[in-house]
Computed example of a mutant assay.
Amino acid sequence: MANTSSCTSSTYDNSSSSSSCSTTTITTAKRQKHHHHHNHHHQDDPLLIPGLPDHIAQLCLSSINPSLLFKVCHSWRRLIYSPSFPPFFSLYAILSPPKSHHNSHSIQLHNFDPISNTWHILPPPPPQKPPLHHILLHHPSFLSRNLSVQSISVSDNLILLAATTHNLTPALSHPLIFNPNEGWSIGPALNTPRRWCALGTSDNVVYVASGIGSHFSIETAKSIEKWDLINGTNWEKKAEMKDGRFSREAVDAVGWRGKLCMVNVKGDAAKEGVVYDVEEDTWKEMPEGMLLGFRGPVAAMEEEVMYVVDEAKGIMSRYNPEDDVWEEILVSQRLKGAEQMVAKRGRICVVSAAGISVVDVVAEPPRITVVELPEGFEAVAVHVLPRMPVTDFSVQK
């Protein structure tokens, strides 16, 4: 069993990056040289490093783990949150408020900063109908079942795409998009707003398949649409599924090696699995070994290596496509009841009955970090995006 530790700044920061930072820091230094009088440094502020111009000092400091810079002084602390500094990664979570809250059946969106070890609520999205607080997690008619809120992260954006209102209809006619630097925006209208669908991404393209709209329709249940977040302005219909069996439950369409892998129900129930080839626009049956392993949430690291957590046993496994088998890598009580997960930069964030756990799968043996939630809140989903710039400096505490 992997070691478990309390949350520290190593949860998700630049220390987990395997990419070279030389190009980033040189570009940053040029930008800082042009703007340094208008960013964090004012005429009366001390220099970042005595004896060096700030744009040269930033070139030196940007290669250092920001968790170390945070502890030194306020000027370095301001630097790591400035728009010109290479951003570290942080957690963005959909949380369920405490039951005493007047909107306890709804959701709130929060950001966890692993450097300052603090939670901050995200700014509200633009006005829409119905408003965000009308998205429900529970309904009086279905107290034993959670209503799905489906979200995804694409190209450093968090996207809310499907949910349910109090009258059991689709809550979102347009995707709601949150970018850490730009705030909220609204995406193109879905051809058919839906809930209980399959949602996934491959190569910066969002896909939504099956599900139901205001009423069940076999056309919606068999349909798949794609939206190119970078180059597209509308949703595009693609090849239909062979039947409507994927409208029974909200599931993930896991982007993996140019394909979307999905099953029609969660847990240990008998299920059907399909694989959609995004280049060929074709559907195929899921390999038998892959299907047998879908016993909980699944995520693919950089769309290359696929992981699953067995929600009943708390076992995390990695898929071996050559042998069509899942290979166990760790077991933890914290992973039991796993509901959602995301994989990025060598770490896997898992939402389970125990809260949010971050598994470092690069470490040997894998190491689990516990992220403490705000008091009374429960996690619904978690994503990994760059940190937000800070202007009011509540992080100075």
Rank of each mutant, 00 (worst) to 15 (best):
S63I: 03
Q58S: 13
Y81G: 08
I64M: 09
I80D: 07
R78F: 03
S75M: 10
F85K: 02
V72D: 10
I64F: 05
I80H: 05
C60M: 14
S75T: 12
A57E: 04
H74R: 09
S75D: 12
A57S: 15
S84T: 13
S62L: 04
P87A: 05
P66F: 03
R77H: 01
S84V: 12
Y81H: 09
S84L: 10
S63C: 10
C60S: 11
S82R: 04
S75I: 09
L79F: 10
F85M: 03
I80R: 01
S84F: 06
L59Y: 14
S63F: 07
L68A: 11
Q58W: 03
I80Q: 04
P66Y: 08
S62D: 14
P86G: 05
L68H: 14
Y81A: 03
C73T: 05
L61D: 12
S62Q: 07
L69E: 09
L68C: 11
L79Q: 02
W76H: 02
L69D: 10
Q58N: 12
L79P: 10
Q58E: 13
W76M: 08
F85C: 05
N65E: 01
S62F: 08
C60R: 04
P87T: 06
P83I: 01
S62H: 04
S62G: 09
R78S: 12
V72M: 08
S84I: 06
S67I: 09
C73G: 06
L61W: 14
V72A: 14
P86K: 02
L79V: 12
L59F: 15
R77W: 02
L59C: 10
S82N: 13
I80S: 07
R77A: 03
W76A: 07
W76D: 00
Q58M: 15
S82Y: 03
